[in-house]
Simulated assay, not measured.
Amino acid sequence: MTDPWARPANQPPQEPTPPTGEQPTQQLPPQAAPPTAPPPAPPTGPPPQQAPAAQPPEPPKPPKTGSAFTRFIRDPLSITLVIVIVAALGLAGLVGGELWARSKGSEVVAQSTQCIVQDGVTVSFGARPFLLQHFTGHYSGIHITTAGNNIREAKGMKADIVIDNVTVANDGSNRGTIGNLNTTVTWSAEGIKETIKKAIPLIGSFVNGVTTNPSNGTVELDGVLGSIIAKPQVVNGSISLQVVELTGLGFTLPRETVQPALDAFTSQLTKDYPMDLRADSIEVTDSGVTTKLSAQNATMDAGAPQSGDCFAGI
């Protein structure tokens, strides 16, 4: 007989059915344990430095001792500034003294020269410090130029003067000596005419023009009735006008007619040259006559007839 509860051979076994009202319990699969972290690697660098411990505050420094001068000489910047300031003040004093000395010297020389030439003058000095010359009483490189209006009675005459090796003294009327004095005097043709008209009335009244001729070195005095051709020359350190030709009313006249008057005229001009100036050369130019004069070791005599009291202020 067949068992009704028997299970067919090919049927899998069934779970027992739970009683009504109960839910079957679910079985969860067991979970794996979390992986264990590997131990940390040992440090390879130098060990970290420990932060320095807090230092206690420094006690206040005691105040600087010593004098202000001691502290000053220990400061090189202050010393440098003082040296620079002192040097600048010294230089400014020297420059101011030099300018004052040049101004004062120019004033003294100008007054003396104006007194002699009776014309305006301009004075300048060379590059050598004038203040040093003033202390030593020895001067060089003095340059004087007259205005060119006249030199005493000579109209239209201008002088360019260079003075060197001057020694100032105060020995009575002797105010010192001038070692070298060189003068270049230019006399315009118009000035010659005006001077002759005033100085030689007999000749000047007939002269209405002066013509210079550099080719033969002559000066022609032109008049209405005739002309005088004269040649300027240097004779024994003085200037002379030698008559070359004299014409009047179309006729040639003897030179002795006017030569004495011209000699007196030139003698009056040259005898008043101060400082023993002597003519060295004379040249006729297109515009007039140029004369070079010089003197050596001339005495500045405050009582000399040629200079009068012109050197009294030196």
Rank of each mutant, 00 (worst) to 15 (best):
D75N: 15
S215D: 11
F311V: 01
V284D: 03
P19H: 00
T2M: 09
N297F: 00
I239T: 08
V95R: 06
G172Q: 10
G96T: 11
K197H: 08
K271S: 15
P48M: 11
E15K: 09
V224S: 14
Q296N: 13
A41W: 03
E58G: 14
V284M: 06
Y139W: 13
T17A: 12
P8I: 04
P260I: 02
D160M: 09
T2G: 11
T270P: 02
A298V: 06
T113G: 03
I192H: 07
V168D: 04
T266H: 08
K104L: 05
M157Q: 11
V123T: 10
E245Q: 15
F125M: 10
P18A: 07
E245L: 14
E283Y: 06
V82W: 07
Q268H: 14
G148P: 00
I196C: 05
I200P: 00
S240F: 04
P40G: 10
N165V: 05
T291F: 01
T291I: 15
G105E: 05
T290H: 09
A41S: 10
L241V: 11
R7G: 05
A33L: 15
P34Q: 12
S240Y: 07
P16H: 10
K292T: 13
E153N: 13
K155D: 14
A147M: 10
S67A: 07
I192D: 06
G191S: 04
G308F: 05
L253Y: 09
T270L: 09
A302Q: 09
A264W: 01
P39L: 10
I161G: 07
D280Y: 02
T195I: 02
Q233Y: 00
D301Q: 02
R175C: 07
Q50A: 14
N10G: 11
Q259D: 08
N170V: 02
K104A: 08
A37S: 10
A33S: 13
T80G: 15
M157R: 08
V185K: 00
Q242G: 05
V207T: 07
V234A: 03
T25R: 11
G148W: 07
V117A: 12
A87E: 12
T80L: 15
F206D: 14
R102L: 10
T145P: 02
F69L: 13
L91P: 11
R128T: 12
I192Q: 12
R175N: 07
T218R: 01
T218H: 01
S294A: 04
V207H: 02
G148Q: 01
L77E: 13
A169W: 05
V235S: 13
G179K: 04
